[in-house]
Design a protein around this nucleic acid. Structure first.
Lengths: 104, 104
DNA sequence: GCAAGACATAAGCATAGACTTATGTGATGC
DNA sequence: GCATCACATAAGTCTATGCTTATGTCTTGC
């Protein structure tokens, strides 16, 4: 279950912040730590989780590792969402009416 | 951070299954337990988490409580996704469909 | 009223996972 | 070669949370 890894990765507040930072622009691990009170190993571990979930990908540049948002992860969420189009708001009213009619 | 509750709620495999079951059709808590080896309190607790996250809503019917997918929760995820449009690969068909449906 | 059913809440336990410090690995520069 | 930097991995600790049993609350049917 791939989606589960994605949700688990984004469920942690610290990782969520890291992901948002990367979404604003790709960065290496040290740069990501700036402004956050987090140890270097913790950052490394969080990035590994995000990477394994497919939300982030790395790119070695000498002794730096540049991290960036991986579109594939976002695509998976989007694809997952399409499974529930029946429940999307634009159709909610029609659905509500339908359900109400069916109940009686 | 509302999204965090949503991701946290879906990160648990058991809750994910419950959500999928409800997406296939609204049910009461007892019906949800069928086919799952899970205690009644555990189910009740999971449903509370899903409800607090806005993913599921309840509807009292006598001594039964009918649970159903709350479109608001899915709408929040969809809205969250739009923040990352810049990263969406144009080639992904699922995304195209999603965008088209959401923009109208 | 009272028993039984459907669900929620309480309290305690046990594991997952987020953190730490310490150490390892690979690249760069002198 | 060797010191240093950027990052990964290891190992241990502590807290969050998912589970259990026990009990409470509300509703229905007799």
């Amino acid at each position: 279950m791939i989606e589960n890894d994605i949700f688990k990765a984004l469920a942690d507040p610290t990782r969520y912040v890291i992901f948002e930072k990367l979404a604003a622009g790709s960065m290496n691990a040290s740069a990501l730590r700036e402004g956050m009170t987090i140890s270097q190993p913790a950052m490394s571990q969080h990035l590994a989780v995000l990477r394994n979930a497919g939300l982030v990908r790395e790119q070695r540049q000498g002794r730096f590792v540049n991290y960036e948002v991986d579109p594939d992860g976002l695509a998976l969420i989007a694809h997952w969402l399409t499974k529930y189009r029946a429940y999307w708001p634009s159709r909610v009213d029609a659905l509500k009416t339908l359900l109400k009619d069916m109940d009686q």
